[in-house]
Structure formats: structure tokens, C-alpha cells
């Protein structure tokens, strides 16, 4: 049943669109804080470590952004990344670049299936992706027998990740390229238009003939694809695949998207903002070490950061009954 007017909703229509400048200001302030404590933070070595650390989060967050723009969520990205890491190691060891491409294709297909199930069966994305999370972790545990599997020496299909491109870690450059491509897709494809229309007013979008199933399937397929890409970067860095390799990345990735200013309620934001969010999250991670905050508190901080970021960006007027 649709909601009835409740007068207190009137005041709730105000929403802070922090997308414009606030996240960038926050990033600069954070960097300033860290630098004040440790001036060497802006040196090449430490910036490189920021870039290395940021690369997998960047890929995951870029893939998550369209899903969140739609107003959905994907809780399975990190588990899929772990699964991909396990598959990557064995397929890259056997088939080199073809194996790597195969993993990316498989993850893309898996994402597409999740998107189709979610939108055709009209089941909330969080529950479908929660199921997928269980499915992926089970499969990766089974495939790896719950152990770390090492990457064969000199797998060029993956080890390029550790090279430098113009002095920047290649994994991070790869993330930036993917970000740019997705940014262009959002801007120049009808799909991008549809993302925003469905995210801000799905009934109106449907009543204008927007192909909702295809739009959703594409968004989730992209999330699958970037999960596999994040796995490439992670495996390149650690030289092994593991069923828990990426389990700590779900929260930073979601945090990166919302801290960048993309509203969890959908329709507001973009991949450009996600870059700012990713850098913020990484600076927080590394900065905590520099400033001397107990790293075990990271989870507490990320949990709080997500709640605060969503509190600031959410469009309450749109969610008449918040569940």
C-alpha cells in the first residue's frame, strides 16, 4: 500500500548533496592531517603504497557505483573477487592470458545472472547478492580446499600489475582506466541516462519505456567484471589466490562509493566521485597507521563512516517509508 501523507515528512525533503565539493575538501583535510604528522607521506614511496592499496578498492567501487546509482546494493562483490582469485591462479597457471580472460568473462556472466534474477523475479538486490555471497564463498572454499594457492612464477598475464607506468603502480593505472571507461559509458550511453532515471524515479522511468531488466543486468554484469579485475590486481600483489583474499574489501568499497557522494538511495552521484571516495578511504586506512590509531579500529571507523556518509547524502523524501 502506498504511503499516506505524514506531516513530518515535509521537513525531510532536505538532502545535503555533498557530491560537489565536500568529499574533495574532506580528502584534502585528511591528507593535511596525515602530512602534519608525517611529512614523508607525500613522498613517492608512500604515495605509491597508497596507489597499490587503493587499486582493488577502486575497481570494486567503480563497479558498485552504477548498482548504487540504481538504488540497489551488491553484497557479493568481495566474495566474487575471492572466488576469482582462486580461479585466476589455477587458470592463469594453466592457460595464461586466456585463463585470465576466461575468469573475467565468467565473473561478468555471474554478475549478469544476479542482475537478471534480481530484476526479473523482483527480489531485493541485497538478498540475491547475499545468496550469491554464500554461493561464491562456498565455491571458492571448495575450489581451493580452503587454502592459499600460489601463482606460478612469472605469470605475465597477471604480474604486469606490479610494474610501474610513468612511475605509478600499473594496478592503479588499470583501475583509473576502468574508471574512465565506466565514466564515459555512464555519460555517453543511453544506459547511463537510464541509470539515473531509474535511480531517482523508477516508476516514471518505467512509464517512459526504459528497459529496466537490461539496465539492471548490465550494471550487475559490470560489477562482476570489476570484481574479477580487482582479483587480478590482488593476486598480482600477493602472488596467491585465497577464498578469503578480498573478504575485507566489501565495506571499504561500499564506503568509498558513499563517501564520494553517491547516495545510497540512488539517482545521485557518479564514478568521478567514487575516485575521491576511494582515495579518502585509502588515506584513512594508511593514515590510521601513520597517526598511530590501533589498526583493529579500522572496522569501527569504516562502519561509522558509512553510517555518517549515508546520513548526509540520503534522499529521505524519496523513501516515504524507510525500511
Amino acid at each position: 500500500m502506498s504511503p499516506v501523507n505524514i506531516s513530518r515528512r515535509k521537513g525531510a525533503s532536505q538532502r545535503l548533496d555533498i557530491g560537489g565539493y565536500l568529499p574533495a575538501v574532506l580528502l584534502v583535510v585528511l591528507v593535511g592531517l596525515v602530512v602534519a604528522r608525517d611529512p614523508a607521506f607525500l613522498g613517492v614511496a608512500s604515495l605509491r603504497s597508497v596507489a597499490v592499496q587503493a587499486a582493488p578498492i577502486l575497481l570494486l567501487a567503480v563497479g558498485l557505483t552504477p548498482v548504487i546509482l540504481l538504488g540497489g546494493i551488491d553484497l557479493s562483490v568481495a566474495a566474487l573477487t575471492s572466488l576469482c582469485s582462486v580461479l585466476l591462479v589455477s587458470w592463469a597457471n594453466q592457460a595464461g592470458i586466456t585463463g585470465v580472460a576466461g575468469v573475467v568473462a565468467l565473473a561478468t556472466a555471474a554478475g549478469a545472472v544476479v542482475g537478471v534474477v534480481h530484476s526479473v523475479a523482483q527480489v531485493p538486490s541485497f538478498i540475491v547478492t547475499l545468496g550469491a555471497l554464500g554461493l561464491y564463498s562456498g565455491l571458492s572454499l571448495e575450489a581451493s580446499d580452503a587454502t592459499n594457492t600460489p601463482l606460478a612464477e612469472g605469470s605475465p598475464a597477471i604480474s604486469w600489475v606490479n610494474d610501474y607506468f610513468a612511475g605509478i603502480p600499473a594496478g592503479f593505472v588499470f583501475g583509473l582506466i576502468v574508471l574512465a571507461i565506466v565514466g564515459l559509458m555512464v555519460r555517453f550511453l543511453p544506459w547511463g541516462r537510464y541509470l539515473y532515471a531509474m535511480g531517482s524515479a523508477e516508476p516514471a522511468a518505467l512509464m517512459s519505456g526504459v528497459p529496466k531488466i537490461r539496465v539492471r543486468a548490465a550494471a550487475f554484469a559490470l560489477t562482476g567484471m570489476t570484481s574479477a579485475m580487482a582479483a587480478i590486481v590482488l593476486v598480482g600483489r600477493t602472488s596467491f589466490g585465497s577464498p578469503t583474499l578480498a573478504s575485507g574489501l566489501l565495506l571499504p568499497a561500499i564506503a568509498a562509493v558513499v563517501v564520494g557522494g553517491t547516495a545510497i538511495s540512488g539517482g545521485v552521484g557518479g564514478v568521478g566521485r567514487t575516485l575521491v571516495g576511494v582515495l579518502t578511504v585509502t588515506v584513512v586506512q594508511i593514515g590510521m597507521v601513520v597517526i598511530g590509531i590501533d589498526p583493529v579500529l579500522q572496522n569501527v571507523i569504516f562502519g561509522a563512516v558509512i553510517i555518517v556518509a549515508v546520513a548526509l547524502t540520503i534522499d529521505r523524501a524519496k523513501l516515504s517509508v524507510i525500511k
Partner: peptide, 11 residues
């Protein structure tokens, strides 16, 4: 704060 429970409890 009128936040989705999904996000609050994820946090």
C-alpha cells in the same frame, strides 16, 4: 536518522 536499516546494521 531515518536511514535504511540495511546500511545502519551493515555499519
Amino acid at each position: 536518522l531515518r536511514l535504511p536499516s540495511l546500511i545502519v546494521t551493515l555499519g
